[in-house]
Amino acid sequence: MEKKNVLFFIYQMGGGGAARTLLNIINNLDREKFAPKLVTLNFDGSYEHELKSDVEFIKLRTTRLSRSIFSLSKIIKEKDIDIVFSTIPRVNTIAILATRLSFSKAKCVVREADNLGGTFKEDLQLRGFGMMYKLSNQVVSLSEGVKENLVSKYKVKPSHIEVIYNPVDIQHINHKIVTGKVDSQFQPIFETGDKVIITAGRLVEQKDQTTLLKAFAKVNEEISSQLVILGEGPLKDSLISEAKQLNIENRIHFIGFQSNPYIYFKHADVFVLSSIHEGFSHVIAEALATKTPVVSTNCKSGPSEVLNGGEFGYLCPVGSVEEMKAYILKVLKKEKDEVNQMIEHGYRRAHDFDAKKIVKQYEEIFLKTLREK
Rank of each mutant, 00 (worst) to 15 (best):
K334Y: 06
T93N: 08
E344V: 08
N137Y: 10
V359S: 00
V204N: 11
N247P: 06
V151T: 04
P36Y: 04
L315F: 04
S141E: 03
V272I: 06
S281Q: 06
F129V: 12
R64M: 11
A268R: 08
R31L: 09
T99F: 05
M13N: 05
D30C: 10
S143M: 13
D44T: 12
V321S: 06
A217S: 13
A18I: 13
T99R: 03
K33L: 14
T119I: 13
L367W: 02
N24S: 14
D208Q: 12
L367I: 12
K244V: 07
V219D: 08
R251M: 10
H253A: 03
Y264K: 07
L126A: 04
A217I: 11
S53Q: 12
V151G: 02
I75T: 05
G15A: 15
K77N: 13
D269T: 07
N92E: 04
T369I: 05
E344L: 14
D237H: 10
K105W: 06
I343Y: 01
G302Q: 08
D354Q: 05
Q125N: 11
V91W: 01
T87W: 01
K74Q: 13
F9A: 09
K336R: 12
C299P: 00
D237Y: 14
R31E: 13
D54K: 09
F254S: 04
F57V: 11
Y262W: 14
K37T: 10
E162F: 08
A326D: 15
G256E: 11
I240G: 00
L60V: 07
K79P: 09
V39P: 02
E2P: 15
A350L: 02
E205I: 12
V55P: 05
P234S: 13
I170A: 00
S66M: 14
I358F: 02
S66Y: 10
E335P: 08
A268L: 05
Q171A: 13
K360M: 14
A106Q: 02
F43C: 07
L227E: 03
R100S: 09
P303C: 07
Q206F: 04
F85G: 04
R251L: 12
Q245R: 10
T99W: 02
P36H: 05
E2N: 14
D123Y: 03
